[in-house]
Design a protein around this nucleic acid. Structure first.
Lengths: 332, 332
DNA sequence: CTCAATAATACTCATTTGGAGCATAAGGAT
DNA sequence: ATCCTTATGCTCCAAATGAGTATTATTGAG
């Protein structure tokens, strides 16, 4: 196949490709993401680095950057999305800085090393999205957010735009009484950005003003890292429903409650225990190991392991997460 | 946000980003993709071109290339995946050709212009994946493919690898009697590639030999375009189940049969008519227009339109596609 | 003008799935 | 022993789903 001439002709338009990793673990029932601490001039950030000639593949490049920056080796890795630049980033360093692509990845790890390196920390991901955790009922921060959202919708230029904004709010944030959909993490972040609720919008110059209202927009991150994190959470929340990805976060053997709490941590919802177990059993997702744990605080729990054969038997071997009316979508 | 220094330091590692479009339409109940004809030295290809400074965003760049190459304007556009180079492409033009990224997109259009430009054609997508069309029962080409797949599994280096290959076959191609999963288009293409069933594997040097067995591997495409097409089909087949994307392919008003046939075209499956209608109705995906069509060949059909409010009411407003036992997954 | 062919539409029925709550079992702590 | 906690098992019912059948409204052949 004669692609030579074509490729050469194209090389004139060069860009830089930044590989960025959302490395996820669940410890003590909390979802955590691997971050680099904020430094003098910069905010907290995700491990990342440019794609370089020494990297065999994009994914290899990513693994290499994460390891060198955090001493954490990665297991399961999945590409998320490639973000262009001018639609979001600030051309702070002049025109020549404007050709950067961010290729986002999500990685799952089982046993996070405690403080793997200096300046590296596993942080609760709800630190960055406080409105996403419904495990203890409706997050209070939503009451502080909603007025801003409604004001933004009301301030739309025309009636058509106003209706469009109201619909986006209804779909994403379940204003006007609809059901909260835990998957729409990215839409919600984008809305928060557009309405000036997150600090990044001001840093990028997308929204004018001093900064967001205090204490409601979640912790900011450098560049577009929080957007990449939102994409990762959305992807994971969607994927657990039809792919057995949760097991990448669990040790080889685990109890059903551990499994449930891991799913709950990711989804940000409380699930109905008996039904969750029934689902897991009838999907054939796990098999008994014979062993039991004692440190449960109650009756000992069976230890189970993931059953790979489930991949063959089910078209969509996942764990549908539907909140119990009790704690998930109901009141506080 | 002080990103200046960091960005400059990274600019040394430049790559080229190629934007590639899978533009899809369904006409006469057949799924079609917009392609550029094969030329003297090259195979059929998808519209594509490099991301350039003049492009405001990645998506804008894509739209611009598609329009200039095919005179087709795009409606719905969605990014698919960014493919690195060394994992697949041949470094045919020397070392400097090895830093190309392909960013794949899928676009849906309603009314394909007939022969929009010279050298441009809407082609049935099953031309490239003959094993993916189960609307008339099991595709005969599978009988020709399976021996090659089994031989490849049997020829694995060790017993562990042999088992791994057999499992991949079982999952992707439903060998050993499992159910065919229409979503796994990409896995099947990758397997066909690895087993030397598709011409691209030889062109890339990934498989040694003259070329694939004749008449079974589907029509080849330039570079990694067929892989991108496989990704697009897989994405669409998955997405119709939880998002109302089909309507992007239909005119403003349509009949329920048209809707069903469009879904069937994408999924490559035959559906049970009464149940499909019931699903559409109870999901509230469409509403009556009052009008009817006559050219049905039988009783006139109601004309309906998409109901946007369904987006608000349902968490996953889509059309689950489960084959009827009759024609979909059953015998020929 | 009647009848067959073709689709559209309506309805039935059995089975499965899914949400909710309750009952019982088996540990540890006091 | 009693209570607390968690694991596990089971029931009930409503909704969704798969499959099949019946009826209705056109077109077109004879």
């Amino acid at each position: 196949m004669n692609r030579g001439p074509r490729i050469r002709e194209r090389r004139s338009e060069a860009v830089t490709a930044d590989l960025t990793a959302v490395v996820v673990a669940v410890t003590d029932g909390e979802p955590r993401v691997l971050t680099l601490d904020a430094t003098a001039g910069e905010l907290e950030r995700l491990p990342s680095g440019p794609f370089e000639p020494r990297h065999r593949t994009l994914e290899q490049g990513l693994r290499s950057w994460v390891e060198s920056q955090t001493r954490q080796t990665l297991g399961y890795v999945e590409q998320l999305y490639t973000f262009g630049d001018r639609d979001r980033q600030v051309p702070s360093a002049g025109a020549e800085a404007s050709r950067v692509l961010s290729i986002g990845y999500v990685a799952l790890v089982r046993e996070p090393r405690q403080s793997a390196a200096e300046g590296v920390a596993w942080r609760d991901w709800y630190r960055y999205f406080p409105w996403e955790d419904w495990r203890h009922g409706r997050p209070p921060v939503l009451d502080a957010i909603e007025p801003s959202l409604r004001a933004w919708a009301a301030a739309a230029p025309g009636p058509g735009e106003r209706r469009a904004r109201a619909e986006r709010l209804a779909v994403s944030f379940a204003t006007d009484g609809g059901a909260w959909n835990e998957d729409r993490v990215l839409e919600r972040y984008e809305l928060a950005y557009e309405t000036g609720l997150v600090a990044e919008a001001y840093a990028d110059g997308a929204v004018a003003g001093q900064g967001p209202p205090r204490g409601v927009g979640g912790e900011p991150m450098a560049g577009d890292h929080r957007r990449i994190l939102a994409t990762a959470i959305a992807r994971l929340r969607g994927k657990i429903k039809y792919r057995p990805v949760v097991f990448e976060l669990l040790p080889p053997t685990f109890t059903l409650l551990q499994l449930q709490q891991t799913v709950e941590a990711l989804a940000g919802l409380r699930l109905h225990k008996p039904n969750f177990r029934r689902l897991v059993e009838q999907q054939g997702l796990v098999e008994d190991t014979g062993a039991v744990t004692l440190g449960t605080g109650g009756r000992p729990a069976r230890l189970v392991r993931f059953r790979r054969e489930a991949l063959l038997e089910r078209p969509a071997p996942g764990l549908s997460v539907r909140a119990t009316r009790a704690a998930g979508s109901g009141g506080s």
